[in-house]
């Protein structure tokens, strides 16, 4: 099979599973469809020669963030019965707004003129070796600062989720 056909099929599957995220009424089913979407996006990354990002996407998004979402969903014990329904007017308004936004995007893309692609083919640029070199030379300061961000997020999450009584003690 042609690789361009593979790209089109992957794109279709990505959009289909993303649509199912917002269309399915059961919240757990929404989370599972979002995991499928992340796997499809990872496959797109592999197609684009970004192997490191593909693996990190699976580990961080499908592995860590979505498990967090599933845990919260199960902890709050949400089901189809507790799922709040939005009115038909709201749905129509959202569809019109989304369609308008998409029209703006696509007309802007059609008007834009892209620069020529890179003639230097560097298929190894998405591998850990090359990305690590860039990360630890040009972007080492943001990398270190992101660890401070993580500490702040961790402390904030623990502090927020704690009950008030326990803080006073």
């Amino acid at each position: 099979m042609d690789i361009v056909t593979v790209a089109y099929i992957l794109g279709g599957l990505t959009l289909g599973s993303a649509l199912m995220v917002i269309l399915s009424t059961h919240p757990v089913r929404s989370v599972l469809y979002l995991i499928v979407t992340f796997f499809m996006i990872s496959a797109n990354y592999i197609l684009l020669n970004a192997q490191f990002i593909a693996i990190v996407n699976i580990i961080v998004y499908a592995g860590a963030i979505m498990v967090l979402f599933l845990f919260v969903l199960m902890m709050l014990n949400l089901s189809k019965e507790t799922e709040p329904k939005s009115s038909i007017f709201m749905k129509i308004a959202a569809a019109i707004a989304g369609g308008g936004l998409l029209t703006v995007f696509i007309s802007a893309i059609k008007k834009a003129s892209l620069m020529d692609p890179s003639t230097v083919v560097n298929a190894d640029q998405g591998l850990v070796k090359n990305l690590g070199k860039v990360l630890f030379t040009d972007y080492v300061l943001p990398f270190e600062i992101s660890s401070v961000l993580f500490i702040a997020a961790m402390v904030g999450a623990v502090l927020l989720a704690k009950r008030d009584k326990q803080i006073i003690e």
Partner: peptide, 18 residues
């Protein structure tokens, strides 16, 4: 673009905060 718009429509249409 379509993936982004699906996300926007989801934010507008769904009422469940998660």
């Amino acid at each position: 673009s379509i993936l982004f718009v699906i996300g926007v429509v989801g934010v507008l249409v769904r009422k469940n905060a998660i």
